[in-house]
Design a protein around this nucleic acid. Sequence first.
DNA 1: CGTGGTTGCTAAAACGATTGAGCGGACTCA
DNA 2: TGAGTCCGCTCAATCGTTTTAGCAACCACG
Lengths: 351, 351
Amino acid sequence: MPRVRISDVAAAAGVSNSTVSLVMNDRDARIPVETQERVRAAAAATGYTPNSVARGLRMQTTRTIGLVSDTIATTPYAGRMLAGAQDVARQHGHLVILVDTGDDPEVERDAIRALADHQIDALIYACMWHRVVDAPAHLPARTVFLDCRPVDGGHPAVVPDDRAGGATAVRELVAAGHRRIAFVDVDEPNPPIASALRFAGYLEVLREAGIEPDPELHVHGATTTAAGGRSATELLLDLPEASRPTALFCFNDRMAAGAYVAARHRGLEIPRDLSIVGFDDQQLVAAELDPPLTTVALPHYEMGRWATEVALGVRTPDDPGAVHLMECPIIRRGSVSPPPAAGGDPDRRRT
Amino acid sequence: MPRVRISDVAAAAGVSNSTVSLVMNDRDARIPVETQERVRAAAAATGYTPNSVARGLRMQTTRTIGLVSDTIATTPYAGRMLAGAQDVARQHGHLVILVDTGDDPEVERDAIRALADHQIDALIYACMWHRVVDAPAHLPARTVFLDCRPVDGGHPAVVPDDRAGGATAVRELVAAGHRRIAFVDVDEPNPPIASALRFAGYLEVLREAGIEPDPELHVHGATTTAAGGRSATELLLDLPEASRPTALFCFNDRMAAGAYVAARHRGLEIPRDLSIVGFDDQQLVAAELDPPLTTVALPHYEMGRWATEVALGVRTPDDPGAVHLMECPIIRRGSVSPPPAAGGDPDRRRT
DNA sequence: CGTGGTTGCTAAAACGATTGAGCGGACTCA
DNA sequence: TGAGTCCGCTCAATCGTTTTAGCAACCACG
């Protein structure tokens, strides 16, 4: 059964194509209501909906946005960015064409070209984790960077405020009464940009609280995995009793999971003997840990929304040209309590 | 800078639009190489690529496929299905338009309509987890179901072979020497279809091994989470020593994670005191458990590929009309060993 | 009664590609 | 020499919309 075209509706209503188009798009107020109703009835009866391809050709806008990402869709990390983008797109009658490049520059180039050929109205260039990237060539004018920023600027971009997030995490620990707080960091050759930022937030709060940073408490795992977190935490627990930390701020939730393992092997109970806060709020790891992990959430959904709103032109960045920093809220679960010896505020237990 | 059109190339090469099109699409062998080269040079010089929208209108094919899903893209579960679909689509020069309906039937209806309006060449209807669904109305002829099957048939569908997967899991345990094997199941009001299937596989292997199924060893958690797995496992560990299981087959990896917690609280070491196999192979949980979890993988990537290949017509189902069952391979990590008392085959330790 | 304005609609030209039909010339062959 | 074939290309129609310009009829006004 072939699609019904505008001419079918026109025939059914006894008018011309033009009239049908005019009515369906509310374009010419001069058409009498009676005719309008006749046309609408015919459209409903035939089940007509305009062919978006033909319309796209004529109007030079396809109500379609492209989203190219390194591996966002195929890894469990950042799917919520997609959800945010989708929701906004749908609200504005747009469809999203998704291309996962698997970080292959050639695939990326082809994808951008193909998307341009398909006349997308805007492009979102997304990364799985906060990065600084070389903007690929031939980007459409309407391009927004999501969870990454182009090294040379030139396009709107949104990334998480990792520094402030790091500060939030450590502030939570300080508020619980901790003074010896370690930062469980990564030691990769190219550490994620978030590493330095979260560490900056850590230092900032220590200073704020009048705590002298102890270099011994800044440890590194080889990878951002549970294994990395575990080995780094073991370094900490090997320290003489007096200089051992009472709380850990872990670079991410996976490393925090490793810290749990290390602590458990020493017979330490969380949070009674050791408080831990993570970062990322990865449901599958943070919420399922025992006890559930207090962590700082990456605002993936909100970033996805923001990027899409500016891509569609329904939002203008406060400061176009600047990178938009999205706040990272803390998610309180059960891994923070006052330090063993110190008093702290009992109300903060298990918040 | 406006897009370069075919007429620009024609002008540059001193030929007509037709000739350019003919050359670019290798359609008319009669055009002399010399002219062909002139045209190609002009196309390269101007950076011409055909406008897909115009081509789509004329050719009635957009080289685009739609993928509607309940929540696949926004949850960490099944992103690999997307990867499989993407890879096949790209290999065949197609783009994928993704719509996540959030399980809202109205959104779903609108999405299918919008995709049809955009003249997608095929539609993939995907679910986050293995389900039997009522096929929505007005599906395009070229529709394939992914990780779900329409209750009334009528379209190709691919789902994991959960029964065989369950059998594989239990066979692994039997091979290690276990005889008292529990199934840690879910007890939700609408249990996932996979639950009954995996249980069927479990029973099948017990029968095969001449083991009498013990109803006491079929326990249920309230949810498919770690919490559910933990409470169900506690039931098992409360059993008198003699009737306690030496191995657990858990409905999924999250419940297996809960089983780890329950076991640890009793001072049981995995796999020495208790062997566990999970299901799903969720990287974030299975691989990061201590010890890493032996589990049966859901072949998400392969299913995504299969669905897309039949959607694009580059593969024909062996038995069109039948649901294609995709094999679930076992991923051996460290959570299976011979039972404490029994001997078993030492070679299978820590495989 | 001529002029100008409104009303209700339509014809036709885009948008940018693809493609079947066809044209003028050269060549072949009887 | 005339008919037929091939070569190398172009013309124009087509896909299904949107939209501008404008036609015909009618009315009002001076």
